[in-house]
Simulated assay, not measured.
Amino acid sequence: MQGLNPGQRWIRHAKLTDIAAIEALFDRARQVMAEAGNPRQWGDKYPFPEMIEADIRQGHTYLLVDDAAQEAQAPSTSPELPQLDERQGEHERIIGVFSLFDGIDPTYVDIDGSWLDDDPYMTIHRMAASGLGKRAAADMLAWCMSQYRNVRVDTGPKNYAMQHILEAQGFTFCGSIGVHDDRDPLMESTRVAYQRHDR
């Protein structure tokens, strides 16, 4: 990416200094899900602070950003596919966050249904949007698919908005998986699982 265009979005790795902003995104995501009738996907604590920090330290967390914080009318979308660029804009806005993992995800081993295949894959977890721009989830998913051909992701059974976005982005519903974490008893234990494999 050459110069910083305020309306252009890009992807960068999250830093420890981004933790407060990321926690605010997750707070908003929990509120939006609760208002949409999906209060139990993330309960009232997930993602947990130690999980957020560990993801960043291990290089798993990415941010979708632009440089339009000082614009009178900040653009709500970008016509271009975001590219990976580690620069930080002077007037940066965080549009979205997600974590990306390589290798076998233990929660995906047992599925009520079947995955598209058993080929090596990447997994997306903890995706959330700030509400500052349209198509944030679509942009993050599109970037992941531009980097990796085989991607799996899960969401809540009542997260109809995310299910719609996944299907619009070419992901296939594969079945249901179980998750369990004693740290938040309000969090539901079932997820619906999706996969996209571009051959």
Rank of each mutant, 00 (worst) to 15 (best):
G59Y: 05
R126D: 05
A14H: 02
I22L: 06
N38S: 13
R57G: 06
W42E: 02
D44W: 10
R87W: 05
W42L: 05
T61H: 10
D119A: 03
P6D: 03
V97W: 00
K134A: 07
L100R: 02
D105Y: 11
I124P: 00
A36M: 11
G133F: 09
F48G: 07
A20R: 11
I22A: 00
Q2W: 08
S114H: 15
P47S: 13
L25E: 06
W115H: 08
A69M: 08
Q31T: 08
P79V: 00
I19P: 01
I56P: 00
N5F: 01
S78N: 10
D110C: 11
I94P: 10
D67S: 07
S114M: 14
F98W: 07
N5R: 06
P120V: 01
E90H: 15
N5V: 02
S78T: 07
L81G: 00
R126K: 09
I94N: 08
P82Y: 03
D18P: 10
R28E: 11
I111G: 06
V32R: 14
P47F: 09
L25P: 05
Q58A: 13
R126I: 07
K45S: 02
L64S: 15
I52A: 02
E86Y: 09
A14I: 01
F26R: 03
A24S: 09
P82H: 04
